[in-house]
Design a protein around this nucleic acid. Structure first.
Lengths: 187, 187
DNA sequence: CGAGGCCTTGACCGCGGTCAATGCCCGTGG
DNA sequence: CCACGGGCATTGACCGCGGTCAAGGCCTCG
């Protein structure tokens, strides 16, 4: 809970009063490894803060699972498309470790947004950050060889390599598991 | 100007009073073909609304220009990374046609955000939309063959094909111009 | 001890990149 | 009016990166 509050305050200053209302809006969720947070086809009604653990977002393409992002400690996670539009998700979110999360429903968030201008600003700034993070990934994803992608991952997100099975990492990088294995053997 | 107002109202309802303040904050800019809106290395201090015309965002990689997005009528455009963080841009934005734009400075926008909760909400919702749009592009960019990418572009953004040189489209799709040409000849 | 998950290694080959030549269209100037 | 040059697109030759298929090694866990 303190972790969540600290993360929120890192985004933008929050008054004492709003802090209380914010924290009261979140509910703790503890789930075991391999559990699903969201399944494809169902509408995602919650936004989660990941206090402890890690998870992956993946979708199915021609019968294969494509992992396209990972979440770690202090990330806000959900199927954004589904959560924002309240339409069925095209992706799944699955825990890769037993995790501790804090959950807030769409309705509760909407209420907070109506009642506290600070929350509106907080969310706007959070979106800004998430937008440019995604943009950065997008720009780096094209026009790089398999080796370059892996080396960049090592430099910028080495915890992924340490905590995640190689098969997931391969599809995250947009290459096959076999190619990733060969890249690693050449170091 | 009416176009800009309509676009804003499409995002979220705005009171009469806020409407006036919003419109007063924008300045018209008319620029000829090939002009730059933003150049790499300079910090981007304005957000633009594109009323008429079209443009491209591109960055340099190993001496080649990589066009990674296009803007058309009714788009809000800027180098988001640079505009949000107020650090030097890594990309360029260049007009592909003579264009009519409406410009708002970072300072003016910040002031509006402080004074009108509605603007804060408007921007938050705009970011939501832009975020899921980018996410969609990202998911579709990997694991598709050159032919699939082009066919999808034809279906979803046929105006790009009609208004933009093929060389730009090729790098937008993440393929070489020659490959795009061959894909097109096979129809 | 066997089964299954995870990773590695080998053989093969096709997609798509690079390089280079050529064609086509258009604006500009002699 | 035609000639020339530049921008844009097409086409061919070549070949390497990385994908697929398949086999095998190495854990861990029941």
């Amino acid at each position: 809970m303190q972790q969540l509050l600290k993360r929120l305050k890192d985004i933008h200053h929050i008054s004492e009063e709003t802090q209380e209302h914010l924290l009261a809006a979140f509910t703790q969720v503890v789930l075991p490894k391999n559990e699903y947070l969201i399944e494809e086809g169902r509408t995602c009604r919650h936004l989660y803060f990941l206090e402890q653990g890690c998870l992956r977002g993946f979708y199915n393409l021609d019968g294969k699972e494509i992992t396209h992002w990972f979440g770690f400690e202090n990330d806000f996670v959900t199927s954004f498309h589904s959560f924002i539009t309240q339409t069925p998700a095209v992706e799944n979110i699955q825990l890769m470790e037993g995790s501790v999360l804090w959950s807030i429903s769409k309705e509760t968030l909407t209420k907070l947004l109506d009642e506290h201008q600070e929350v509106e600003r907080l969310l706007r700034i959070a979106y800004e950050k998430y937008y440019i993070r995604l943009e950065g990934r997008f720009v780096n994803s094209q026009f790089r060889t398999a080796t370059e992608r892996y080396e960049q991952l090592l430099q910028e997100n080495s915890q992924i390599v340490e905590r995640v099975p190689l098969g997931y990492i391969a599809s995250y990088l947009g290459i096959s598991q076999e190619t990733l294995s060969r890249v690693r053997s050449r170091l």
